[in-house]
Design a protein around this nucleic acid. Structure first.
Lengths: 202, 202
DNA sequence: AAAAATAATGTACATGCTGTTGATTAGTGA
DNA sequence: TCACTAATCAACAGCATGTACATTATTTTT
């Protein structure tokens, strides 16, 4: 990685540009944003933009990847067996709480990227991270029996569900605490949506 | 609605344009598609496009809404109590099978719209339809107890999960039959992801 | 089948964004 | 202080947009 210290000016400029991206996407969506807009809002010369990014797509990707990288860090910390035990005690998982807190801190960016004007590719990236993690953790778990449906479908189901709830939480301006959210997610995944909904099984 | 019969030429032209949209989005994603591209692929004059649509966004929206409308029709046919009973017998729901069949018939369009180059707004529209329907059906159900988590979150969870599985199914070129898919979805929602994954509860 | 209606074409135009270049100015790190 | 390089400014060709108007072709109506 950037071994040599980065010039202050570069850091400054990049920050301006990325902030401008968030703001402008909020207004117009990614499609509507032009490099002109970005540089105008960031108050830099248009040429300067091209000194750092190939085009707006490059900017989007690099911004996304930074977040993805940080999310990966959080997720690594999860302990596989802790997952089952914590849930049995109706305790939310610490690393999930931490994740919600991280999202909350970067709410503006996440809200835009996951919102209706966001980028579907970003969804995919996040789901991919979740999936990889879940498969790893599942592999390491103690008491388990063979899955009843294709694992691939199960993964799509759970990752989409979780991301969907996060999306909704952001849209609603995060009215619930990270802790509440973690618990709600765990309930639905462990007890099952139908049960949680109150549909009796017998 | 269009009370007077529509001129053949209009129908023809619109069909050309919409087919071109699907094809071009497959290649470049919606952002990359220009009106020029569309009219070139559709083999019509560029001016003609503007006779029917304001711009490419207008075209996208109208195309999406047509599909949404048709999905709504399918979903209306679902019978609330049939849902629980069918599931208990490990039988997939007929209207869900029909839905998967419809998606299969329109695979190309759906694949593009729900894929990484698609439009997040379309996801929202579909989830909205699912949600409305589920709430209605839930309301009409017989044996039920109060929900254990906020209904809003539950809805986000289930609609996102289902759409996510559909997305994945499309990406994998629909290797499973509509019937299998309907059953898989039902299992996960009724038994719960964790149980289906083989994570033992006691 | 002829006439009236209207969809589609071809062409042109001003406008705005893109990505690049080369010369110049200003800020940074040693 | 001085060498380095980021940022600015101005200009360029290329391309897409949306609109307008006269003309041609097709469809619907009578």
């Amino acid at each position: 990685m950037g071994n040599s210290k980065t010039d202050r000016r570069i850091i400054r400029t990049k920050k301006f540009i990325r902030d401008a991206l968030t703001e402008l996407m909020e207004e117009k969506g990614f499609e509507g944003v032009t490099v002109r807009d970005l540089t105008k809002k960031a108050d830099i010369n248009r040429g300067t933009f091209y000194l750092h990014y190939q085009d707006k797509y490059d900017l989007l990707e690099k911004s996304e990847n930074e977040v993805i990288q940080e999310i990966k860090e959080f997720i690594k910390k999860a302990n596989p067996n802790e997952i089952v035990s914590a849930n049995l005690k109706e305790q939310p998982l610490p690393f999930i709480i931490a994740l919600f807190e991280y999202i909350q801190e970067n709410a503006r960016f996440m809200q835009v990227m996951l919102g209706p004007k966001g980028n579907p590719g970003f969804h995919l990236k996040i789901k991919e991270v979740m999936k990889t993690n879940m498969l790893e953790k599942l592999e390491l778990m103690d008491n388990k029996t063979p899955p009843l449906v294709p694992l691939e479908h199960l993964m799509s189901y759970v990752t989409s569900a979780h991301l969907g709830v996060i999306q909704h939480w952001l849209e609603q301006d995060m009215k619930q605490s990270p802790r509440e959210m973690a618990l709600t997610l765990a309930s639905m995944t462990f007890l099952g949506p139908a049960y949680v909904a109150g549909i009796k099984r017998t």
